[in-house]
Design a protein around this nucleic acid. Sequence first.
DNA 1: TGAGCATATAACTAGATAGTTATATTGTCA
DNA 2: TGACAATATAACTATCTAGTTATATGCTCA
Lengths: 111, 111
Amino acid sequence: MSNKKHKDMSPEAIGLVAARFKILAEPLRLLILQTLEEGEASVTNITLSVGSTQPNVSKHLKMLQDAGLVSKRQEGNTVYYKIADESVFELCEVVCGSLKEKFSERSAMFS
Amino acid sequence: MSNKKHKDMSPEAIGLVAARFKILAEPLRLLILQTLEEGEASVTNITLSVGSTQPNVSKHLKMLQDAGLVSKRQEGNTVYYKIADESVFELCEVVCGSLKEKFSERSAMFS
DNA sequence: TGAGCATATAACTAGATAGTTATATTGTCA
DNA sequence: TGACAATATAACTATCTAGTTATATGCTCA
């Protein structure tokens, strides 16, 4: 009768998934993750890399850490963050693929 | 020197990716997509399925359509929506896998 | 100890948006 | 045509959050 492949998720599970997407729904956080993809980095260096202010970056780093996407390590005075969940890049790739397809369809409309 | 696998994205591209995640960052929209995974459905049936109000569901359906994730078809009085971009389910699966792993690590801490 | 640096936190503001209620639009059918 | 049904839209409110500014915390080193 139905061809769906998996069970429906509970409302709580749906909420958790939505929360994960929400974390990724902010350009600055994606920029931070992109920066960290090259390896761990200090808050100062992340701040310089993404072109924002230090308090703002610290706040976003905290959100990313609370979500389990990054982890930190302190060495003396400076705190180094790194990626803790590589799935974020897989997610971005899927989205990029979808967007690329969408735009190639659009451009095909003019040819 | 660096082991990253792909080029950095432009700020515009980052913004588009973030916008896609934002669309998925809402439990009700995920519920709607989950409903549509079983096949096309009218606004009325979607509304009943997700347990919200008709105007609210119509608004979210419009957002999903603008994002290219669903498409609609009118038949007489009723409008049927269906999935237009299957990548959303792949995204949810990746997130679910990540969350599952995260929670199994948590539970392992108590054993 | 005290100065200075790196990071975190607090308080605030402005803008965005989910949900509600009311109404408009469009189609069907008697 | 007129009543009714399905969907869309408009206006409004309450909530949330990104960014800013100011300040606190904690470490290092002279």
